[in-house]
């Protein structure tokens, strides 16, 4: 199993790609920058599982925290508001 590449507090950017297939990275968060909230463990890759393959080796999964203001330029809440999303490591790059 691959060692997790990121640690809590690391700044990361979500890959801005739009591949076909079954993907668990929501459209709205691609290209956004956030901070690793925690490493959740490593899990079979859902993109592979969906195609009836093993999805192994497991891929590190993180919870990433994003300021809402950054995700939605017209966000109408408060500056401190955040959205937290689980994202697999291959969708993240250092920011």
């Amino acid at each position: 199993m691959a060692e997790p590449r990121f640690r809590t507090g690391d700044r990361v950017k979500v890959v801005k790609a739009y591949p076909p297939g079954h993907v668990r990275t929501p459209y709205y968060i691609r290209g956004c920058t956030g901070e690793i909230e925690r490493y959740c463990g490593s899990f079979a890759n859902p993109e592979e599982l969906a195609q009836m393959r093993s999805g192994l080796p497991p891929v590190p999964l993180y919870r990433v925290r994003f300021p809402q203001e950054q995700v939605w330029p017209d966000y109408r809440g408060e500056r401190a508001d955040v959205v937290e999303i689980e994202i697999f490591e291959h969708w993240l790059e250092p920011a």
Binding site: H22, P46, E47, L49, A50, Q51, M52
Partner: peptide, 10 residues
């Protein structure tokens, strides 16, 4: 798997 179910729903 749950992902196969999801794929076919999507």
């Amino acid at each position: 798997t749950v992902d196969e179910s999801r794929k076919n729903i999507e």
